[in-house]
């Protein structure tokens, strides 16, 4: 009885956790149902995600997903990052039970929101 190793790993040792001093784009997404909150901050240069940080509070699945997502899109062109599909993140997490999809996808919603806000600024 446990989660996939990859979820436990990212939950216990989150990557890219924290804040950027001068983010080019940022967004917060929350799920008031369970209190999960994720903030994504981006440093964008030449239409590419140079830096990414997340901060969050919530369940293991949402936090592990946020951590893994930062690795998934770091260094990617903005346009490519904006096209990361739900299924891609879910399979990178090793699969997520259907009752917890909202938790797993919360960080991706935050990323898309941040990218959308960033592109309107530039």
């Amino acid at each position: 009885m446990s989660y996939e190793e990859i979820i436990l790993d990212h939950w216990r040792r989150p990557r890219n956790k924290g804040r950027l001093p001068h983010p080019d784009a940022a967004a917060v997404e929350a799920n008031p149902l369970c209190g999960d909150v994720v903030r994504i901050e981006l440093g964008i240069k030449d239409q590419t995600i140079q830096d990414i940080r997340f901060e969050g509070e919530g369940c293991a699945i949402s936090l592990a997903s946020a951590s893994l997502l930062t690795e998934l899109v770091q260094g990617k062109p903005v346009l490519e990052a904006a096209r990361v599909a739900d299924e891609e993140l879910l399979s990178a997490l090793g699969g997520v039970v259907r009752t917890r999809l909202t938790c797993a996808l919360l960080p991706l919603r935050a990323l898309r929101k941040a990218l959308a806000s960033g592109s309107s600024e530039t």
Partner: peptide, 20 residues
């Protein structure tokens, strides 16, 4: 988080509530 507790117990067939 309560949702993690509830999800893991569910794997054992044990249905409990996690939430507000």
């Amino acid at each position: 988080h309560p949702h993690d507790v509830a999800t893991l117990l569910d794997q054992e067939g044990i249905a409990i509530r996690g939430g507000h």
